[in-house]
Amino acid sequence: MVTIETPRSPRSRKGAKWEKWGWLYMRASGVVLLVLIFGHLFINLFQNGIQAITFAFVAGKWADPFWKIWDGAMLWLALIHGTNGMRTIANDYTVRLGMRKFLNVTLWVVCFALIILGTLVITTFDPCSDPSVNQIADISIHCGK
């Protein structure tokens, strides 16, 4: 006779609902990220080129709030998108529940820390407050000194 183990508890609907929002987030953020990242690569790597990327280049870009919002949106959307993708992979390949928990917690802690760090960097960035910037001609003209 075949005995089938009785499930201890039914699956919660709450978890399933959360997964559905995660699934939807991957698609919604993916479309936006396609525009943001392709645009980022086109302007930084294609038009200007890797050799042109300097502190002065970033300061020039972030003098315009448009690019601060662009980069801030990229930061938030991409980190959450990437972390959720890594969570899916961790859930697929881990066998032990403890390891799965550890990886998931680590992923979200790193994601949270980098979002806070990046957001603070973008919102508090002020090239003119740095004394050494006065030697960089193409920035100091923006500083009114």
Binding site: V58, L79, M86, L117, T124, V133
Partner: peptide, 24 residues
């Protein structure tokens, strides 16, 4: 490709954060 991009994103967030340390 997703995993590769993810790890680059971690590094790229940190290197960009250096604009808040110093231009050098």
């Amino acid at each position: 490709t997703g995993v590769a991009i993810f790890f680059f994103l971690l590094v790229h967030t940190l290197d960009t954060a250096l604009v808040r340390v110093s231009p050098e």
